[in-house]
Design a protein around this nucleic acid. Structure first.
Lengths: 355, 355
DNA sequence: TTGTACGCGTTATCAG
DNA sequence: CTGATAACGCGTACAA
């Protein structure tokens, strides 16, 4: 009558409750709870009976009920700007490991790069009554800060550090990292550098840009040009070729994000420009493909594991009740020098020598 | 006294309950529930008061309580072999979008590529009492199938399709895809092909390998060699150079996963072999970096969006009560021909012409 | 529109 | 010291 198919066995059936277990073991629900949670001691014999019954029924306490009663959870919510960016998913992967180690559950939401969605998702996350939150705000304005503050729960801001964070922050030394990349190019003899940014509306990116400027100023190099390529990587090539049509070709390019690195690389290939003979390239974020690329890409490596681990540790401290002043931790990046950077070609660089 | 720091405002404070809202609006809890969930009609005036009170208190119904009472959830659990592999995270990203569209929440867990962890995580996921589950088993044995079956809830197996799935399956036409890649190489004139697999213990990979064999047999080509490089990408180079020390260099390589593609590419570069002049390469999975690479990589593109969408649609049907026989959907892949494949070099291929 | 029983696991209180 | 009884948390839904 109802579905004669193979799905017969998948009809919804209620999972066993603590009462089922108690009945089967011939004890009270209190005893079941005590045994399974190891609170009060029980006789070995009773404990064994309870455990057997629980196993036989595949009993698993309902989180909703447990949480409702105790009023506390092992849930940590994580909200990232997007799940399409491997940088963010790498952070999530590490956070997930940390969570597992400390017996927490994480729930992840993506803001889809939109503050409105971030707010919607955050609201949904809060309904889980998480013990804490790790957030990577999708804009500098950090529009959801008030909502987060009003929730009165510990949170940590990761990677993108807005002015109004209002809580502990974990980020990287963006300026130093970019300055290091610039210094590397300067040492090789580059004077005409183009900076490929995603968007200068992001503090991270502005800090990196500032680092480039600082490094150039320190060496009396002309200030590089900067180009905003947007968040996706597909639009990059068009922007770049438009810019190059109106300006002299730089001898080196610094890309400030992983997507822009990809965009620049795709563009250079399309144009038939050889890296590093015609143009040197420093990328950002260090992925496996950068090592496998031809040539392997010199890149700024952000300490993804450390970032996630520090964020987790920091949040756990707050959840545990730590009440000191808010911290702002900045982690150092390092430059992986590979083969995409070399001294500049003779002609173009000499042409612009005298400014 | 307690913490004079900036974290003052983050002291734990209980969120408003439905009773708080009721009191503030001067109505009963039932009315608050009715108004906020739009079930029974209320006078406009009362509704407004309730909404004002709820907004003022930033009231958000506690999921645990709601779920406990209604006995049903909008939760779908997703379990993947690993979160380090962009193929899996891409699937998760699409699933997350689907979930948002149909007003569901997803919770994601990683099995860390280990069946034991898969079981542990699955058990934890079940405690959420999800409405359904999407699983990518981390081995062919699908050790967690009995647990899943015993839970009596709808689930869908995605990507890796084991023999004992016991539920709807969504995968790709692995054999056809690999056969297509092989045919492409055969057409270019390649006769000595090396297949770089991750592990033949995975049905997916075996199917791809079978596809290669089938295509070769159909064209009277000698059966290619196959090499298992493991799941990580870092060990690949070592395995490959070991193999090449004992065998003649093939004129083309087919990589059967994204990680092996990366591994092969890194190896070829290390060896100073030019692609495609010395060796042609067909990769698997199509990522942005493959287009940006030099040369852009010819690759089998798996329909990630469709896979996730079909899995979601399928699961929703079951959650909705559909009871037909279990489905097995296989989606077609297509070959993105780019510049990493070309006719074989003269010498090495002629050497082996006469078998 | 309201009162209130209910769902399920936890824990304080009480009995053996 | 072991084990049982019952109140409780919070939102939902039915009866009133």
């Amino acid at each position: 009558m109802t579905g004669t198919g193979v799905h017969e066995d998948q009809e919804r059936r209620k999972p066993a409750t603590i009462r089922d277990v108690a009945a089967r073991a011939g004890v009270s629900v209190a005893t079941v709870s005590n045994v399974l949670r190891g609170r009060k001691a029980s006789s070995a014999e009773v404990a064994a009976r309870v455990r057997a019954a629980a196993a036989a029924l595949a009993y698993q306490a309902d989180r909703a009920a447990a949480q409702l009663r105790t009023g506390q959870t092992d849930i940590v919510a994580v909200i990232v700007p997007s799940l399409d960016n491997p940088f963010f998913t790498a952070l999530v992967a590490v956070i997930e490991q940390c969570a597992r180690r400390s017996r927490h559950e994480i729930i992840v939401a993506s803001a889809g790069n939109e503050p409105e969605t971030e707010a919607t998702r955050l609201r949904a996350l809060l309904s889980w009554r998480p013990a804490g939150i790790i957030i990577l705000p999708c804009t500098d304005a950090f529009e959801t800060q008030p909502m987060l503050a009003a929730a009165h729960l510990p949170y940590v801001v990761l990677d993108r550090l807005p002015a109004n964070a209002g809580a502990d922050c974990i980020g990287t030394e963006n300026a130093d990292a970019a300055a290091g990349a610039t210094a590397h190019l300067a040492t090789l003899g580059h004077r005409s550098i183009l900076v490929a940014a995603s968007s200068l509306a992001l503090a991270n990116i502005r800090e990196r840009w500032d680092g480039v400027l600082r490094a150039c100023a320190a060496r009396d190099l002309p200030a590089p040009a900067v180009l905003e390529l947007g968040l996706g990587f597909d639009t990059a090539a068009a922007s770049l070729s438009g810019w190059l049509a109106r300006h002299a070709r730089p001898s080196a390019i610094i890309a400030l994000t992983n997507f822009t690195t990809l965009g620049v690389l795709a563009f250079l290939r399309e144009q038939g420009l050889n890296v590093p003979r015609d143009v040197s390239l420093v990328g950002y974020d260090d992925y496996a493909w950068m090592q496998a690329a031809t040539p392997p890409v010199t890149a700024v490596r952000q300490p993804v594991e450390q970032m996630a681990e520090q964020a987790w540790a920091c949040l756990l401290r707050r959840i545990g009740g730590a009440s000191g002043p808010r911290e702002e931790i900045r982690l150092a990046c390092n430059l992986q020098v590979r083969d995409s950077t070399a001294p500049p070609p003779r002609e173009p660089s000499t042409k612009g020598r005298k400014r």
